[in-house]
Design a protein around this nucleic acid. Structure first.
Length: 704
RNA sequence: GCCCCCGUAGCCCAACCGGCAGAGGCAGCCGACUUAAAAUCGGCACAGUGCGGGUUCGAAUCCCGCCGGGGGCACCA
């Protein structure tokens, strides 16, 4: 058993941290971070769900803090491209979500000279073809760049900017994400020069440009970007169309200047100097080439993915194994001093207060620098608990190992995980982090694979009356009460039978009473069998044996492909056939009945182990059915004596023939053409062709 | 706005590589057993696959376009 809160486990989180640190994959930086005012801690991007804290649903705000990050972005391309290797074994939904989350886009960095500033400012754009349509520039209000640009503006502008920046800071993520939000901003009194035509562009600060994407600054092309157009209209800034766009029917779209709707599709360049007459793709290639020659632009790639913020201001978690020394700076704790154990919490104020509670444990915080031996302070933050689960699957292979995180030989033998099962809620949290860790560990030479989970199944959830159970809705189903009423076997069977495992189950749609009834029906078979264990099934009723062996032959494949609901349905069929054989067929003494009842018990042990074991022992066995496996399928019993051959005329079923399973194409064609119903349907029309798929189908195509 | 998934009997769901639309269950109805009921056993009925095109000898299945439902991302330049 693994307990990730114990030093025996988090020791190796710290070991991982220092290895990542050594490779430049763990680093500290000041940044505007997600802040949960209720939990009083920072959150990773992945832990902000629709603007709310993943743990407590409080609206998240922003705060400028210096925090620890894992450099997931170093692996952005690999994390994205290797999703392709998971196609087919991972749900396409999860692949799409990760793809979306990583959000790679291709474009160009373009340098804009700023009046009164020595260095030009780079902007990122996916649409360099629209450079001639740029009519102003916008920088993120919360960026360092905005603060710098405004610092030389006159007092009125500075005041206005400061007020605006303050207002924006107070906004929650929810407010920021609102699509109906009007555009706001402040003109900084500064100008940029458009490198393609030398035009002077006003520089504005606004919250619709993000500080931490691209360069935190954009060229605004209002005619061909809706956000820029909204801003231009709100601030009364010029709009210039540089692309004549057509709609799906080839008609020209209305000019954005008039319509208020930016055109983003393909078209022909206008008002764009040397680019005039080119289409979008040609213009992008041409302008990048031209500006690269001039040294003012370069092709560039950007990602939506951010580095993983792992610092938490919580008393539980793994202490970050760093010592801050005035002389040496950040010093990772050496291996032989790990683990850095959490201090005793006695006497500490553990309430969230915006600073790690560990800071109050002064005896613990005050330490000596591992490098120079001088006085130093421990880092007081703890790690995100998602660090624990990013590599636990490797720890499971050697859980007691004391001289390393996991045994590499065991990992070579067992890992990666062939089949992982988990909720879709982890699509871009755990599953992304674990993929990152795996790739990093591979690059450290500790494992020889780059993807941790070869196949993934997202199991569904149990709902009630169309939605997730919740106290406030009052649509709760007590599992304990259901178990009391129907028993664990019936409940488990109900869930398995309700539908494919990846589907949600609505408890209002299923019938645990029906499951209990079925189990009783199956159980009675074992009670009724009156032959001795070990009788030769070959002496039994062939018809029932055929059903038994057909069930067996299908069951393995169905189980392997997780179609448990179908397996249960097949067992139900076998139970029905066996019941019939006992009551009105071969009778309870027939060896085939014993064989069938035993197969029922063996297969049911997957879903209803208690019931199955009881059946097994009632059938006279001393061992466990769970360990008994499945008997081999007798292929001879799968061969049918006759099969029904469907005869179609022009694709419509007109007759059925009972034929031998190895009837030849010619025989079937002849039989079909002679069948009276077929002759009637053909109505004298000449045969054009006859399609024969032995033994089951003949289709006569006639000339009309 | 972009992306992913799903629409088959009253309901939950099967249907292999395109080949008889139905395996199983729930609910329903009928019968046997019973003084009666429960339980049990047996039987019956119910859709032409969301809509419109296309490909094909043949489409629930493949392609295109809609409609409906669920989910993800989103001021990402």
């Amino acid at each position: 058993m693994l307990m990730t809160h114990r030093p025996e486990y988090y020791h190796w989180n710290q070991w991982m941290f220092t290895r990542l640190y050594d490779r430049g994959l763990a680093y500290r930086k000041p940044s505007l971070v997600n802040w949960c005012p209720n939990d009083q801690t920072v959150l990773a991007n992945e832990q902000v769900v629709a603007g709310l804290c993943e743990r407590c649903d409080t609206p998240v705000t922003k705060k400028k803090l210096t925090q620890w990050y894992f450099k997931v972005t170093d692996y952005a391309d690999e994390l994205l491209d290797e999703l392709e290797t998971l196609r087919g074994t991972w749900p396409s939904k999860v692949i799409a979500m990760q793809r979306n989350w990583i959000g790679r886009s291709r474009g160009a960095d373009v340098q804009f000279v700023i009046e009164g500033r020595e260095a030009p400012i780079p902007i990122y754009t996916t649409r360099p073809d629209t450079l001639f349509g740029a009519t102003f520039m916008v920088v993120a209000v919360d960026s360092d760049l905005a603060a710098e640009l405004v610092s030389v503006a006159d007092a009125g502008v500075q005041e206005e900017f400061a007020a605006y920046a303050e207002r924006v800071k107070g906004d929650t993520e929810i407010e920021r994400l609102s699509t109906e939000r009007p555009k706001t901003g402040v003109f900084l009194g500064r100008y940029a020069i458009n490198p393609v035509n030398g035009e002077r562009l006003q520089i504005w600060a606004s919250d619709y440009v993000l500080a931490d994407y691209g360069h935190g600054a954009i060229m605004a092309v209002p005619a061909h970007d809706q956000r820029d157009l909204d801003f231009a209209r709100a601030m009364d800034l010029p709009v210039r169309t540089v692309l004549n766009c057509l709609d799906d029917d080839g008609n020209p779209l209305p000019d954005p200047t008039e319509s208020g709707v930016a055109t983003t599709g393909d078209g022909t360049l206008i008002n764009s100097g040397s680019l005039d007459g080119l289409d979008k793709a040609e213009a992008i290639t041409a302008i990048i080439a031209e500006l690269e020659k001039a040294g003012t632009a370069s092709a560039s790639v950007n990602y939506r993915l951010r580095d993983w913020l792992i610092s938490r201001q919580r008393y539980w978690g793994t202490p970050i194994p760093i010592v801050h020394c005035d002389a040496c700076g950040e010093v990772p704790v050496p291996d032989d001093q790990l683990p850095v154990k959490l201090p005793p919490t006695e006497g500490l104020d553990l309430k969230p207060k915006g600073q790690s509670p560990l800071a109050a444990a002064t005896d613990w915080v005050n330490t000596t620098c591992p490098k120079c031996g001088g006085a130093a302070l421990r880092d007081t933050d703890t790690m995100d608990t998602f660090v624990d689960s990013s590599w636990y699957f490797l720890r499971f292979l050697s859980p007691g190992k004391t001289d390393g995180p996991f045994d590499q030989a065991e990992a070579k033998k067992w890992a990666p995980i062939d089949q992982y099962v988990g909720g879709v809620t982890h699509a871009i949290l755990h599953l992304l982090y674990a993929r990152f860790f795996t790739k990093a560990l591979r690059d450290m030479g500790m494992i020889d694979f780059g993807e941790p989970f070869t196949a993934l199944l997202n199991q569904g959830m149990v709902q009630m009356d169309g939605s997730a159970m919740s106290k406030s809705r009052g649509n709760l189903v007590s599992l304990a009460a259901q178990l009391d009423e129907f028993g664990v076997d019936a409940i488990r069977l109900t869930m398995s039978f309700a539908g494919p495992p990846e589907d949600d189950i609505d408890w209002a749609d299923v019938s645990p009473a029906g499951s209990a009834k079925f189990l009783a029906r199956a159980w009675r078979l074992a009670r009724d069998v009156s032959s001795e264990p070990g009788v030769d099934p070959a002496l039994g009723d062939r018809e029932l044996r055929a059903v038994t062996h057909r069930t067996l032959s299908e069951a393995s494949e169905l189980v392997e492909s997780f179609r448990f609901n179908v397996v249960v349905a097949r067992v139900m069929e076998l139970v029905n056939a066996t019941r019939k054989a006992i009551d009105s067929g071969a009778g309870a003494t027939d060896p085939a009945v014993r064989e069938a009842a035993e197969v029922v018990a063996r297969l049911l042990s997957l879903f209803a182990p208690y019931c199955a074991e009881d059946m097994w022992s009632m059938l006279g066995h001393e061992d466990l059915v769970a360990l008994s496996g499945l008997p081999p399928v007798d292929p001879a019993l799968l061969v049918q004596e006759t099969v029904t051959c469907v005869v179609q005329v022009m694709g419509k079923v007109r007759d059925r023939l009972e034929v031998s399973p190895d009837a030849t194409e010619d025989e079937l064609r002849e039989l079909a053409l002679a069948a009276p119903n077929v002759v009637r349907a053909m109505d004298g029309a000449p045969v054009r062709t006859v399609i024969v798929r032995p033994p089951g189908l003949v289709n006569v195509v006639v000339r009309k």
